[in-house]
Design a protein around this nucleic acid. Structure first.
Length: 332
RNA sequence: GACAAGUGGGUUC
């Protein structure tokens, strides 16, 4: 159940969970927590609450783990209020529940609150681990609070969490968002172990800081190292192509690779493709990608409208805007 | 021994 839940297979996790319940095997506090994690991944808030009620009814030793998982579920579903209410009511507050709150605040755009909660956590003398620091560093990144991020970096070194891969990835991104490409490179170079997130974060760091060619070079190295690519990688690589406004042929090579690896249906890849084609001078191909997309989301509409607007097609941009409103999508 | 919390990605000249 935990294996499925942690790997974004919430539906299968829940299937196994219910099968377990039917079989008469008795779930323990970890089982319920994992089932709630599965609900979080599925955005199934009501089901998660029901699992928690069931957890209490079953009389496991403690529902503390289930509560931490519930906090995450509420946060993932955007119910920050409910998460707070639950957190305040929790009898035993520990590192995991606090980290869940800090991460949740950060993910929902409340990075200030995340940092202030971290200060409180420190004040109470609660322990922190790599997950806490990764979230706090991401909060600094969101706020582009580089001075604070640097202090946190020092703190992370002092507490021995700098080598943790999730901490290093968050550090790298924090520096990249603060336009400190050199510091981002330092973090990347210092890492003993790199995962797909590290590579993508570094590619994105280059792409966002006017080092598009370095981004593309790193992408080549990443492939030579046989690192698994995913939709985030391609979105970042396309971002590099767009930022360089490279020759359309090179952009098309990336597009071909996307098709070959089966990522062309991803919405974030599609919008990155639209931008790439628009910026590389082929608004027609941008529109083709747009037209081939079955379920357009807000970002794709925005991307195509911006593409037209920025390339001398104001009238088409306005027409598309009208179309967008007709499909009952709310402009932002 | 495993199991609750974590890091990267698309639009905004």
């Amino acid at each position: 159940i935990a294996g499925y839940a942690r790997n974004e297979h919430g539906d299968e996790a829940l299937e196994v969970f219910y099968e377990m319940c039917r079989s008469g095997a008795k779930p323990n506090d970890f089982t319920f927590a994992s089932a709630i994690t599965a609900c979080a991944g599925e955005g199934a808030m009501e089901e998660g609450k029901a699992v928690h009620a069931n957890c209490i009814k079953t009389g496991v030793s403690s529902d503390a783990f289930a509560r931490s998982a519930l906090i995450t579920m509420y946060m993932k579903c955007g119910s920050v209020e409910e998460a707070c209410k639950l957190f305040e009511k929790m009898p035993e507050q520990n590192m995991v529940s606090w980290t869940a709150m800090i991460a949740g605040y950060m993910q929902n755009g409340y990075s200030e609150e995340a940092l202030s909660l971290f200060q409180q956590m420190q004040g109470m003398g609660l322990k922190c681990n790599q997950f806490t620091f990764a979230s706090v560093l991401s909060a600094c990144a969101n706020l582009i609070a580089i001075e604070e991020g640097k202090q946190m970096h020092a703190h992370v070194i002092k507490t021995g969490f700098e080598p943790a891969i999730c901490v290093a990835n968050a550090l790298l991104t924090m520096y990249a968002k603060g336009k400190s490409t050199d510091d981002a490179v330092k973090v990347f170079t210092k890492m003993h172990e790199l995962d797909k997130i590290s590579w993508t974060a570094m590619i994105s760091a280059y792409a966002q800081n006017e080092h598009g060619e370095s981004a593309l070079q790193l992408f080549r190295e990443m492939q030579l190292e046989n690192i698994m690519l995913d939709e985030s990688t391609f979105a970042s690589v396309l971002g590099a192509c767009a930022s360089l406004a490279i020759a359309i042929g090179r952009g098309k090579q990336v597009h071909a690779k996307i098709i070959k690896t089966g990522f062309e249906s991803s919405l974030c890849v599609r919008s990155a493709l639209v931008t790439m084609y628009a910026k590389c001078g082929s608004i027609e191909e941008a529109k083709q990608v747009f037209d081939k997309t079955p379920a357009l989301d807000l970002v794709l509409w925005n991307t195509m409208i911006s593409g037209y607007a920025q390339h001398g097609h104001g009238k088409l941009a306005l027409e598309l805007f009208e179309q967008m409103k007709q499909v009952a999508l709310k402009p932002d």
